[in-house]
Amino acid sequence: MSVTAGLPAGPVAARPRATARHYVMCPPEHFAVEYSINPWMDPAAPVDAARAMRQWTELKGVYERLGHTVEVVPAEPGLPDMVFAANSATVLGGTVLGARFRAPQRAAEAEHFRRWFAARGHRELVMASRTNEAEGDFAWTGEVLLAGTGFRTDPAAHAEAQEVLGVPVVSLTLTDPRYYHLDTALFVLERGPGARIAYFPDAFSPGSRRVLRRMFPDAVLATEADASCLGLNGVSDGLNVVLPAEASGLVTRLTDLGYRPIPVDISELRKSGGGPKCCTLELH
């Protein structure tokens, strides 16, 4: 008889689990690539606005079929990038820290979203005094706010976010202009103690890579192929992971780990450097 017979089984790793989420989105009614503020944008390349709308509508439908709440902010003429709602605010525990955009072409978006939040009774509403592109550069792990800088968000905005939101902030430096926002190179798979993230190490400075290795030893590391299609611009509810269809390697890896990847076609919106997460602001 085995000496282990009758002994209790060892610890079993917790399986990923979905939790209901509350998202805010804005339709791409006026989507176009009229200027270039990141390496993905080419005003000379054709854009199919109708296709962009279909892709956005399908993304919204995916969230709703998963049981998540989706609120929609009306689009404004003359703001073709307003579809990227993740850049509009960071919302934690009812407190709203509004955005302050670096590019003048997007500056007016902040006020439209501020009015939308104010109309819904958000009293703890603070507009950033430092350049702060919201969830484009802020990722909530459930315990700390990971904060990107290097191309858009001012490093001083990290301290401002800590003061306004009352949570610890960990600064990370981006070094590759293709990954101009944190949400193009990293996303949170599971929140809370023992949070798990996925990220592309080569998008970060050496010191930031060391910080991420120390904080998230079981992180999912993406390849260049998956990062270069904005595969890390994903949205996870803890189990279901919505990400660009082209990120096939990441899909396989996540499946092996017990997650449920949901590939979506977001190729038209990627012409502005956006993906599922860019289109999705979460109210935490």
Rank of each mutant, 00 (worst) to 15 (best):
P206H: 07
E133G: 05
P206G: 12
W116H: 12
E160L: 06
A156G: 08
M215P: 00
A128L: 05
T141A: 05
V211T: 15
A134T: 11
R130E: 13
D154C: 09
A107W: 01
M215N: 00
A219H: 12
R152N: 12
F216Y: 14
W140S: 12
L145F: 07
R191Y: 03
E163C: 04
Y180M: 10
V126T: 13
F117N: 00
E135V: 00
R106T: 03
H112C: 11
A157C: 04
M127I: 08
R115P: 01
R210H: 10
R115D: 09
A185L: 07
R115V: 04
A108M: 10
G207K: 05
F113G: 08
R123L: 11
L182G: 14
P201T: 08
G192W: 03
R209D: 07
M127W: 04
A147Y: 10
D176G: 04
A139V: 11
P201C: 11
R178H: 12
T173G: 07
Y180C: 05
W140A: 11
A110I: 02
Y179G: 05
P155K: 03
R130K: 05
P168N: 05
V167L: 12
G194T: 03
R123Y: 00
H122S: 05
R152E: 13
V144H: 01
P193F: 09
A203Y: 13
A219L: 08
